[in-house]
Write a protein that binds this DNA or RNA. Structure first.
Lengths: 148, 148
DNA sequence: TATTGTTATACTCTATAACTATA
DNA sequence: TATAGTTATAGAGTATAACAATA
């Protein structure tokens, strides 16, 4: 019976941008999770909070569209932010089906701290990258996003 | 009560490479899932099969390390490939704790077809990208992967 | 003692169908 | 009829602890 090979590699998969993208994503997201942990936030709750801070009164369905997260999956996320007192649901009196989502003062305070931490996180992570590198990467990723 | 705002955006999050990376990844992975579906493969089962084809006799623990997937999570994936008759576990007689993973003829045949489909998929997806674009992107992603 | 494969478990993420209340 | 929010549910992905067999 053969012993396990000593030369093992992932050459075949390396030929795929998707594979490389996923591996790069893993590095960033696991690192980001550590950064957000002290704030009791995950990537998705941070993102949702960021949107609500940026667009006060945004609806869950709009949040869903912007974040590309299915509406049902956002309910628990919004619940979580609300239970922690970071945001409020305010019923829209002109369309009583809908709720506007607003940050609380606590939410604004926490977000500004988390934002600074995440910015610092990326700054450290990409300290070896020039502004031009970042600009190129950003542009390439934007092109991928807009493919379909 | 305020109506939901008409100007809604994700400007704050757009400043983060991680956010853009995740969105680009979503585009590619959901598209890739469609490509792999006819073969009864997912991204992870395709990747595992690719590794086993490339490095015949590879162990589950080596697969785990190469794919950055925890060992326990690979057991079900290897089980799935084996149940479909695409790979075999062969006990390593020199180290009876271990099993070498080998593709079957069926597995080799399916993989070659799936590989061609995935290659074609990326070719179409990146048809608007020059070779230089791909090379740049690949290099930038490799640098991210090697950050830590 | 350490390693290989494994079981069990739990938490997160993602996707779909269907309900309610409102429009 | 259609939309906003919601419930229920199920499938994937991911992480950790601990076990049996073997080194």
């Amino acid at each position: 019976m053969s012993q396990a090979p000593t030369s093992k590699n992932d050459t075949a998969l390396r030929g795929f941008v998707g594979y490389r993208l996923k591996r790069a994503m893993n590095v960033i997201s696991s690192d980001l999770a550590v950064t957000l942990k002290p704030f009791g936030l995950r990537m998705i709750t941070f993102s949702a909070l960021a949107m609500i801070v940026e667009t006060r009164g945004i609806r869950l369905s709009q949040l869903s569209e912007l974040l590309s997260v299915e509406r049902p999956n956002l309910v628990a996320i919004v619940d979580e932010l609300q239970k922690r007192g970071l945001i409020e649901r305010k019923r829209d009196e002109t369309d009583r089906r809908a709720y506007g989502l607003f940050p609380t003062p606590t939410g604004l305070e926490l977000f500004s701290q988390a934002l600074a931490a995440v910015q610092h996180h990326e700054q450290v992570l990409f300290s070896g990258f020039s502004d031009d590198d970042i600009a190129q990467l950003t542009q390439l990723l934007a092109r991928i996003e807009n493919i379909s």
